[in-house]
Computed example of a mutant assay.
Amino acid sequence: MVDQVQKIVTELPDLENVTGVWAVADDRLARGDAAFLADLGIALAGAYGSDAGRIWQYRSVFDHLLGLLATTSGPGNVAQALRLVSSAEAAERKLGRYTASLLASSQPSEELAVAFTGNATEELRACLVHELVLRGADVTETPGIAGWAMSPHWRHHPLGWLPLALSDVERQPDLPSYSAHGGSHSMPYGASANRKARGDAGAHLPSVEETTTEAAAKGIGAAVANWAEESNGRVEARVFDLTAPLEAESVPSMLLALGLECLKGAGKKTAFLVAACPPDQAWRVLFAAASMGGAYNSGARGAYGRLAAWQSLAALAGAADGGLAEEVEARVRECTWYGFDADTKWFERVAWDIGLAVVSPERRRLAMLAATDTD
Score class of each variant (00 low, 15 high):
Arg234Ser: 15
Asn194Thr: 14
Leu273Asp: 14
Gly233Asn: 11
Arg195Tyr: 00
Ala228Pro: 00
Ala248Arg: 04
Pro206Cys: 01
Arg234Ile: 14
Leu273Met: 15
Glu229Thr: 12
Ala237Pro: 10
Thr211Lys: 10
Ala237Cys: 01
Pro278Gln: 08
Ser231Asp: 08
Ser192Asn: 10
Phe272His: 12
Glu247His: 08
Leu205Arg: 10
Tyr189Ser: 10
Thr270Asn: 01
Gly221Asp: 03
Gly202Ala: 05
Cys277Thr: 11
Glu249Cys: 12
Thr270Pro: 09
Glu261Met: 11
Cys262Glu: 08
Ser207Glu: 15
Arg234Thr: 14
Val274Cys: 13
Leu205Ser: 02
Gly267Asp: 00
Gly202Val: 05
Pro245Ser: 14
Ala223Phe: 03
Asn232Ser: 05
Ser192Gln: 11
Ala276Gly: 02
Pro252Asn: 09
Pro206Ser: 02
Thr211Arg: 13
Gly199Leu: 07
Glu236Val: 08
Gly267Asn: 08
Lys196Arg: 15
Glu247Thr: 10
Glu247Leu: 02
Glu249Gly: 13
Lys269His: 12
Leu255Glu: 09
Ile220Gln: 06
Asn226Leu: 12
Glu214Ser: 03
Leu260Lys: 06
His204Met: 09
Ala203Trp: 00
Ala222Asn: 06
Glu247Pro: 06
Glu210His: 14
Phe240Lys: 10
Ser250Trp: 00
Val235Ser: 06
Cys277Arg: 04
Leu273Val: 15
Arg238Lys: 15
Arg198Tyr: 04
Glu209Phe: 05
Glu236Ser: 12
Glu209Asn: 12
Leu263Met: 06
Asp200Ala: 12
Thr270His: 05
Ser250Val: 00
Ser192Lys: 10
Asp200Gln: 11
Val224His: 10
Ala225Thr: 02
Ala191Cys: 15
Lys269Asn: 13
Val235Pro: 08
Phe272Cys: 07
Leu205Gln: 13
Gly265Asn: 10
Leu258Trp: 02
Ala222Arg: 15
Leu273Arg: 15
Phe272Leu: 07
Lys268Phe: 00
Pro279Phe: 05
Leu205Ile: 11
Val251Leu: 02
Ala197Arg: 12
Asn194Trp: 06
Ala257Met: 04
Gly219Pro: 03
Gly221Gln: 09
Leu263Ser: 08
Leu242Cys: 07
Tyr189Lys: 08
Ala228Lys: 14
Val274Leu: 10
Trp227Ser: 05
Ser192Asp: 04
Ala191Arg: 13
Thr213Ala: 02
Leu273Ser: 15
Ala275Pro: 12
Leu258Met: 08
Ala275Ser: 15
Glu209Met: 13
Ala223His: 13
Ser253Ile: 02
Phe240Gln: 11
Leu205Met: 07
Leu263Gln: 04
Leu205Ala: 06
Thr211Ile: 14
Leu242Phe: 10
Ser253Tyr: 04
Glu249Val: 07
Ala225Asn: 13
Gly199Met: 04
Arg238Gln: 09
Glu247Asn: 08
Ala215Tyr: 00
Gly265Tyr: 09
Val251Ile: 14
Gly265Glu: 03
Glu230Ile: 00
Leu246Cys: 03
Lys269Phe: 10
Ala215Leu: 11
Asp241Cys: 04
Gly190Asn: 08
Pro279Asn: 13
